[in-house]
């Protein structure tokens, strides 16, 4: 039961971080906030794996971390031309 309160605090901190995605002045601010939200939801997945007693969710968390990393790399490589300034 304590585990659910910890998950609730992580979800609320993800919502607080989403403020920086809305009001970032530049593109790298938004990418940093997106990376932080991705890692926070990875922690939520690992904690849900212990709450539901289903260990398959750890595999989902591992695959999810790999793809968040690939997203950041692709954004930093291909968004170079089209930023305004």
């Amino acid at each position: 039961m304590l585990l659910l309160y910890l998950i609730l605090i992580i979800v609320l901190s993800a919502i607080l971080t989403f403020y920086r995605v809305i009001k970032g002045p530049s593109i790298p601010d938004r990418i940093v906030a997106m990376n932080s939200i991705g890692v926070m939801f990875l922690l939520v997945l690992v904690l849900f794996s212990y709450y539901f007693e289903r260990k398959f969710i750890i595999d989902v968390a591992l695959v999810f971390g790999v793809f968040i990393f690939i997203d950041v790399l692709i954004m930093a490589k291909y968004l170079k031309k089209s930023e305004k300034g």
Binding site: S26, P28, I31, V32, N35, V39, L42, V46, I58, A61, L62, G65, V66, F69, V72, L73, A76, L79, K80, E83, G85
Partner: peptide, 24 residues
Amino acid sequence: VIIIFLLVTNSVAIHVIASFANNH
């Protein structure tokens, strides 16, 4: 495996974003 992966990955991602901000 997740711990070692995050230790390698997040450092690389933040460095790439810092390089992207420095080019602009």
